[in-house]
């Protein structure tokens, strides 16, 4: 397993409901990222289809594996790289049950997927109308270490990142489609999740305008001490490369030992009180 590698944050805008065009853009970015020696290339939430799909989602959702993941598997094999992207996942057992999924693909093909647990359905968001929530966190052992996947609004719930970290993730990848009015929240929470879990956190957000919603970009790689290692532009497409070096986790873990100091008995109390809210 590599202790040290480069990761590319591919902050793209999507052409809504046009998977062919979006896959082409994903390919372009993977090629460019590989030229800069990145071994993991991360794309935003629902980057296969665009975010604001509403009822069109029923025509666009695919199973995993499915036609689109197979195309991207080919790309990952050819480019010998790891790719994370987002897509609406159609359940294999149904015809209209859809998850908001993050997919991890590697040089040997499909590695795994994560289904978004927290679906925002307030303000401009209507995810619960369309998606079934996931029930599992997702951590995958790869040549690039243990990689955990979370999606956007999940970051407001520290337990998702915590559980992902407790399952061993050293790098938490958060893919996102966050509109501009929420920028401060994400800028704060991405750093907080990295610090409290002493893990690397790669946040990749969408850009562009969909139905009047302007996505703010600002993708970033954050070190386990909360330091922003690289940051993409606000509001515009960008591709930035940062370096993950897991050796950096150790000094932070000794300096602020949040995992050592974890109190499991509090989780029972959390559960008890959350039920009574």
């Amino acid at each position: 397993m590599k202790e040290r590698f480069k990761v590319a944050l591919a902050q793209i805008s999507c052409k809504r409901a046009d998977k062919t065009e979006n896959i082409r853009k994903i390919e372009d970015n993977v090629v460019k990222a590989r030229e800069q020696d990145a071994e993991l290339v991360i794309f935003p939430e629902l980057s296969l289809t665009g975010y604001t799909l509403r009822d069109q989602i029923y025509e666009l959702a695919e199973t995993i594996p499915g036609p689109s993941t197979r195309l991207l598997e080919k790309l990952a094999r050819k480019m010998e790289t790891y790719i994370v992207f987002g897509m609406p996942e159609l359940s294999e057992k149904t015809q209209a049950t859809i998850y908001n999924a993050a997919v991890l693909i590697g040089p040997d093909g499909l590695i795994g997927k994560y289904r978004k647990m927290y679906l925002p359905t307030h303000s401009v968001f209507e995810e619960k109308r369309y998606f079934r929530p996931g029930y599992q966190t997702a951590v995958f052992e790869t040549d690039l270490g243990k990689i955990g996947l979370i999606i956007c609004y999940d970051i407001f719930f520290p337990e998702v990142s915590r559980l992902t970290r407790l399952k061993g993730a050293q790098l938490i990848v958060c893919i996102s489609a966050s509109p501009a009015v929420r920028r401060t929240f994400f800028e704060t929470l991405t750093a907080a999740r990295a610090i409290e879990n002493t893990a690397f956190l790669a946040y990749v957000n969408l850009v562009g305008i969909e139905d009047g919603l302007q996505f703010w970009g600002g993708s970033r790689l954050i070190g386990p001490n909360g330091k922003v290692l690289v940051k993409a532009k606000y509001d515009e497409e960008d591709l930035v490369i940062g370096e993950v070096n897991y050796v950096d986790i150790r000094p932070v873990e000794t300096f602020v030992p949040t995992l050592k100091d974890l109190r499991p008995e509090l989780f029972d109390k959390l559960k008890e009180n959350a039920e009574k809210l």
Partner: peptide
């Protein structure tokens, strides 16, 4: 009819 306002 919950559809995006424009096609793209």
């Amino acid at each position: 009819f919950r559809l995006p306002r424009t096609l793209y």
